[in-house]
């Protein structure tokens, strides 16, 4: 079966005055179709850079990436037809209404005007924004923007949905709503690649996850297997939290994490 996402030796180097900065240093990924795959890591670990390479937004310095079976570097347009993308800080046009934005997105993906309007209506219903659909996005709350961003990423029923920190900055209720949407989208067969800073989010949503640190994947597995492995290694009498798994994998203690979090610009 074709993998939803496959990456082999993915590298991204940014030129800088003090010499090249290697933001991603050889990432391998194999995400199965139908999975919700979590991609975790501290700030600047290379999460967003990896997502941007996989979604055709950033060139790949070396390595190979295939999304829905299509090579990202050699056929980016075919990849774009198969993916939905909701990036950090919901990139929306504040002067359009929610309905206009989703309709335009559907038309840009090739739907005829009437079909695009119908698709927008059903997606606004899906994310519970019908009432606000004819208001300008400028007046939307953070949660509404995220839901609209999610809706606009689904206009073409993508095979793979990329969500880059979809709940950062949201209140707990809005976060739960986004989680419900992600589950519903995944239940309909869409594979989801999710980056997040919230380990509870990964625990709740992800079938499998990988932790990236310093541009390299340092741990990969299901949330349960990662916890069980740490429990065995430490001889604990209870299952550790995913926070503890994360802190161990990234070589951070709670004290270091509080006071000395490495900041690498990615």
């Amino acid at each position: 079966m074709t993998l939803a996402i496959e990456a082999v030796g993915l590298v991204k180097t940014f030129p800088s005055k003090g010499g090249d900065v290697e933001a991603v240093r050889g990432v391998d990924l194999a995400v199965e179709q139908g999975e919700v795959f979590g991609f975790l890591g501290p700030n600047g670990a290379g999460k967003t850079t990896t997502v941007r390479m996989l979604t055709t937004l950033l060139s790949i310095t070396s390595g190979v990436a295939r999304v829905a079976g299509v090579d990202v570097a050699s056929d980016p347009d075919a990849v774009r037809r198969k993916i939905g993308v909701a990036l950090q800080e919901a990139g929306l046009d504040p002067r359009q209404t929610g309905r206009e934005l989703v309709t335009l997105q559907a038309q840009l993906f090739g739907l005829a005007p009437a079909a695009a309007r119908d698709r927008a209506q059903s997606l606004l219903e899906l994310v519970d924004l019908v009432d606000a659909g004819d208001r300008r996005i400028k007046g939307y709350s953070g949660g509404m923007k995220r839901r609209l961003d999610l809706a606009s990423a689904l206009v073409h029923q993508p095979d793979v949905l990329f969500l880059d920190e979809p709940t950062t900055g949201l209140d707990p209720a809005s976060r739960l709503t986004v989680w419900d949407e992600v589950r519903r989208i995944n239940a309909e067969g869409t594979s989801v690649f999710l980056t997040t800073q919230y380990l509870e989010e990964a625990d709740q949503l992800c079938d499998r996850l990988a932790i990236i640190d310093g541009g390299r994947i340092v741990l990969e597995g299901t949330p349960a297997s990662l916890k069980a492995s740490l429990r065995r290694r430490r001889g604990l009498d209870h299952d550790p939290t995913l926070d503890e798994v994360f802190l161990e994998a990234t070589g951070r203690t709670r004290i270091r994490a509080a006071g000395d979090v490495e900041q690498v610009q990615a």
């Binding site: 055709t56 993308v85 990036l87 950090q88 800080e89 990139g91 046009d93 840009l108």
Partner: peptide
């Protein structure tokens, strides 16, 4: 605002 990236990620 990030909308340009949204457009760039579309075909």
């Amino acid at each position: 605002g990030g909308y340009f990236d949204k457009l760039r990620a579309a075909p």
